[in-house]
Structure formats: C-alpha cells, structure tokens
Computed example of a mutant assay.
Amino acid sequence: MLNQISRFYATRGQWGQQSGKYGYFGVMGPDEFQLMMNNNCYINWMAQKSFEYTSDTLSEMKERASEAFALVAEKTGLRDEELTDWKNKADHMKIPVDEVTGVFEEHDVFFDMPHIDIHSIPVAEFPLYSNWSYDRLYRYDMIKQPDVLMFMFLYNGQFSKEAKLANYEYYESRCIHKSSLSPSIHSILASEIGKPEEAYSFFEFATRLDLDNYNRNTREGLHTTSIAAAWMNIVYGFGGMRSDGDRLSFQPSLPERWNEYSFQVMYEGVLLRILVNKTSVTLTAIKGGGSIDIIVYGQSITVDASGTTLPLGERMLAR
C-alpha cells in the first residue's frame, strides 16, 4: 500500500517552473472554500510525510526482514530509482510558510486574497451555499474548516507552541466553521496554546451543533462527525492526549465549570483509564494486565493496575 500511495503522489505532482519545487497543482485541501488551488500546504505536507514514511519503512524492512522485502519488491515491481525519486521529491517539496511570522500559507497566493470580516456576514445568509454564488463564496480568504491547523494537529509534536499560536490566531479569525469537524480541532489547539475560554466555547459549539442548529442546516441530517469529534475534544483537548510521538502522552486540564471527567483508551494491549478532577489526575491500567510507560506533563511514568495519581498540572479557567 505504501508503495502504491507514493507512486500516486509521485505521478500526481509536478515541478514549479520558477520555484523549482515539487508540489500539487489544481487541488483542494480540507478547506472546501478554496478549490483548484496550487500547492495546498496540507496536501504537500502529507505527500512529503508519505514519501518519507514509505522510504523509512522500506529501509527498515530491507535491513530487518530482507526476505519479506524481496517479496514485496518483486510483487510491486519496486525499482531503486523510485526510492531515489521519492526522496528527491520529499526533499524538494514546496511547503509555503512566512519565515518571519511562522504562519504557513494555506496555498499559493492565499495571503494575497481579498479579506472579508466573517463576523460582518448576516446570520440570515447562512448557510452560504444556499445564498451566495460560488464565485462570491470562493474569492476571499474565508475558510470553511481547519486546513493548516489540521496538519498541525495531526503532526502536533513537530511544531512549537509559538508556531501553533501564530497559525491559530491567523486562521481562526478567517474560519466560519461550516464543517462539523471544525470547532473541535480549534478547541483542541486552543486548549494547548493557553486559550481556555475559547477552548470551552468551541467545545460547546461542537457538542451543540445540531441541538442549537448553529449552521442552520440540522434539518438536512445530524452531524455525526461532530459528535465523534466531541469525544476527540475531551481526549485530545482537555485530556491533552497526543499520539504522534514515540510514546502516548497526556497534558490534562479541567474546565472551571466541571468537577471531573474521565475517559479510557486502549494502548499496547492495556485499557488505560484517566480520571481528572479539580486537584488531581489518576491513571489506572484497568484491563489487559501488566504495565505501560506513558508521558504525563512531560515526565515519563509507569502505570499499572494499582494506579498513579498526580497533581493537576494545568487548571483551565474557562467559564
């Protein structure tokens, strides 16, 4: 699968005439208000990571399981020049970013697009798809849902808090959250960068999207993805869980109006329960036997059936 995915990315992309960089032209990223754009940063980033992950996996397989590697290479017709090509394209992938501010540009020319104050749009005009023509909808720097912020969430550990803050503040003010997945991602990042009130507000947005008919389209069906994202909001947002590093990690916080919350995750065959209250965080291996090593508030700890209790490290003040 990795070979075929990388082959697709290697044939779909092209080289820019002036930049000499590799990228993708005529595409649409997660933000569905920007279509047929060039070098969408999310797409380029994900393609680069796919090339790199494929190459790393094949290298490890060749070293540790040479017979299996030979079978895969034969079955897929893998050639050495393909590996060289994928590395070259990954190394020269265009990742548009303002070097001064650290803000990634969603796609070529995004920073130069006309700006619109999203709060100036009358509520009666929502949903915009039903009231605006496409040429009006797609001409501004208004975005439907997180795009840059999405890959910063997925590859969280590769970005500094300062970079997350800069990109959050730039793109949050341009997002109308037309997608039901949008508010929870913003809440998760807001919680991480020290904006507890915004984090809780976006959490309410995600959980009450249909109950309050925020987007004026509940009659068309429930947003089940928003309901799923609300779970993510608690686990990755208030629970501060991150799963993109070498070890599972947590940075729990507690909204001011809550007394406690808990959730469970399966990790390395062990069912882990996390309970957060106003003073402490308790982690317990409740099923699966044995113990697991995780990271909490930046410190490595071992959790077993007897449980581990730590002081609550960051108390949210959202009201």
Rank of each mutant, 00 (worst) to 15 (best):
C175I: 04
L222E: 14
G194V: 13
E220A: 04
R315D: 08
N38T: 01
F110D: 11
Y261E: 07
L312Y: 02
N40P: 06
T309D: 07
E268T: 03
K49M: 05
R216I: 14
G288W: 03
M266V: 12
L248T: 01
L317G: 14
S249G: 05
S201M: 13
Y22N: 01
N156T: 02
F151L: 04
D212L: 13
G313T: 06
A230Q: 05
Y138W: 05
E106R: 04
S226H: 07
K89I: 00
G102R: 09
I301H: 06
P127A: 14
M36H: 04
K49S: 12
V72P: 06
L181M: 11
F126V: 00
D141F: 13
S133P: 05
L271Y: 01
P255T: 04
A228T: 02
A305W: 00
M1P: 09
T309Q: 08
E125D: 13
I227M: 08
A163R: 08
R216A: 14
I292C: 15
S179A: 13
H115W: 05
L35K: 06
D80H: 07
G13S: 05
I193S: 10
P30F: 03
S306M: 08
L312S: 10
Q14P: 09
H177A: 15
A190N: 09
Q251M: 11
R247I: 04
N40T: 07
N38K: 03
Q264K: 14
P255F: 01
D117Y: 02
R257F: 07
D293S: 11
R319Y: 04
E74P: 02
I43V: 15
E260A: 09
R315E: 07
V270K: 06
P252H: 04
I188P: 12
S201Q: 12
F203I: 00
A190P: 09
N44F: 09
P196E: 07
K278G: 10
I5G: 11
Y261H: 06
R319H: 12
D210V: 10
L181R: 02
A230N: 07
E197P: 04
S249A: 05
G102C: 08
G237I: 04
S300P: 11
K195R: 06
F151T: 00
E314T: 14
Y42V: 08
Y170P: 02
Y168H: 12
E74R: 08
K94V: 01
K62N: 12
L58W: 03
F263H: 01
M1V: 11
P30Q: 13
E260C: 07
W15M: 15
I193G: 11
R242H: 15
G29K: 01
K89P: 06
S180L: 08
L312V: 12
F111L: 08
M61C: 07
R64I: 05
I301V: 09
A305D: 11
D91E: 14
F203A: 10
I301A: 02
F202Y: 03
N233F: 01
A285Y: 15
R242D: 13
S191A: 12
D80V: 07
L128A: 12
I227D: 10
S120T: 12
V265H: 04
S160Q: 03
R273F: 01
I286M: 11
S300Q: 09
A229V: 00
F205H: 05
G290R: 07
A229P: 06
D246P: 01
D246K: 06
V270I: 13
G290C: 14
D31K: 07
E52I: 00
